[in-house]
Amino acid sequence: MRYFYFIQYFPSIKETAGDVVMWMGIFLALIGLGLGALIGFYIPVALPQDYAKYMSVAALAALDSVFGGIRAAFEDKFDKDIFVTGFFSNALLAAGLTYIGDRLGIDLYLAAVVAFGVRLFQNLAIIRRYILKN
């Protein structure tokens, strides 16, 4: 996890076992992201207009979860079960909240947008600090 350290000495391969795990994780995450994006761009079905709103909030929640996971990794508290369950439950909860808000005529998705947006920036700030500290 000594990020800067790792960057500095990347060619010399002096990293610890933890560093290997983390870089492997980031590498695989990027591959997964590219794979998912590829699938998303090439599947023939387009998302119906009505569900675009739900999907956008769900994507925001998912993004927040991922940043939360990165932050946890920097804090050395990463747990894959919490990460995976948090990812899906956040996304589903955000979409469900939006749906209920639509039914009730309240813009409940704003709550999800605000909550996840704030957390997103908090996570980013913490990640930034970790990187700058090291």
Binding site: G32, G36, G40, Q49, A52, M55, K80, V84
Partner: peptide, 26 residues
């Protein structure tokens, strides 16, 4: 752990791209 990270990343990528397409389409 790698599998779960990859899965989550793939799902995130899928969601973002689908959403991107939907918004572009809209």
């Amino acid at each position: 752990m790698y599998v779960s990270i990859m899965l989550v990343a793939a799902v995130l990528g899928l969601m973002l791209s689908v959403q991107f397409r939907a918004v572009n389409h809209a």
